[in-house]
Design a protein around this nucleic acid. Structure first.
Lengths: 146, 146
DNA sequence: TTGATACTGATAATCATTTTCAGAAAGAAG
DNA sequence: CTTCTTTCTGAAAATGATTATCAGTATCAA
């Protein structure tokens, strides 16, 4: 998995005449080795911890390229921050977000996907992308609240 | 429909000790009489056209209240702008967004809604809210592109 | 009519993200 | 390895949507 992402990334850089610079590699390294969804700030902090010279702008720039290469996906939960998640080697999934503890649950439902396709077809609409976010309260938080 | 929204709004203001000020009424008036989805800027322009004294900040403030009253819904398409749509008297619906012409198609699919409920139940998750956005190319744009 | 309080518009502040820019690094060519 | 061109970097300034501030104004209950 990691090897492949590495390969895809290298190939993307090469094909687009983008240099394999050290800072870019550092951001890639940290991103690829972190499983959770990351905000830019969080990713910056993590990268900075290991590679203290990294700059904030570089993280933005690197993530843009990493997304373009198809390795990461940018998600917007409407909280004012960009979030990134792994894309390459991961199946498409939707998100359930607990508004209490902010936990993110990734969910998979092929039937919903199919229905969207059917729905789109009825409108002669070709889907390139979609986003399903379910907000609510997770089981843990419900228990804690009584 | 409009009479009811008006009534709900008045009641909300009253119950929350919010005054029925002229500028607030003006924003409400324009919003309620405009069917399309509105961005703050657009709503500001429309309101300004009829009521030239309106201020930008007032539009933001009024829409916040109008949303709190349950009459409007704030939507975020990830384009950096807040969008507002009518909520009171309108059924819940999802959005298909044409990335070419930016057209917004409102779609309704009870089955998808049901499946989300089932999905949530499987995770002991209680839904308060959800958002399904389908991006792609509409029929019109596909024809124009050949 | 009055007085307390909420509201307004203009403007400044905020804050995530982008851009700018001078110096540094990558990579091709010799 | 050196040189040269071009891209990249980090720091700091700019951007742009949204929010807060504030002095003057409007609302509304009494």
């Amino acid at each position: 998995m990691k090897r492949s992402a590495r390969h895809i990334f290298d190939q993307y850089l090469q094909e687009n005449g983008i240099r394999r610079s050290k800072p870019r590699e550092q951001v890639f390294d940290i991103f690829i080795n972190t499983e959770t969804h990351l905000t830019v700030l969080k990713l910056y902090e993590l990268t900075k911890a290991r590679y203290p010279n990294i700059g904030y702008a570089t993280v933005y720039r690197a993530m843009k390229i990493i997304c373009d290469a198809g390795i990461a996906d940018e998600i917007n939960f409407g909280d004012g921050f960009k979030h990134y998640e792994h894309k390459y080697g991961h199946e498409h999934h939707d998100h359930m977000i607990c508004t209490e503890c902010k936990e993110l649950i990734e969910v998979l439902n092929p039937e919903i996907e199919e229905m969207q396709q059917a729905l789109a077809q009825a409108y002669d609409f070709t889907i390139t992308n979609h986003r399903l976010q379910i907000f609510g309260v997770c089981g843990k938080c419900k228990k804690e609240q009584g």
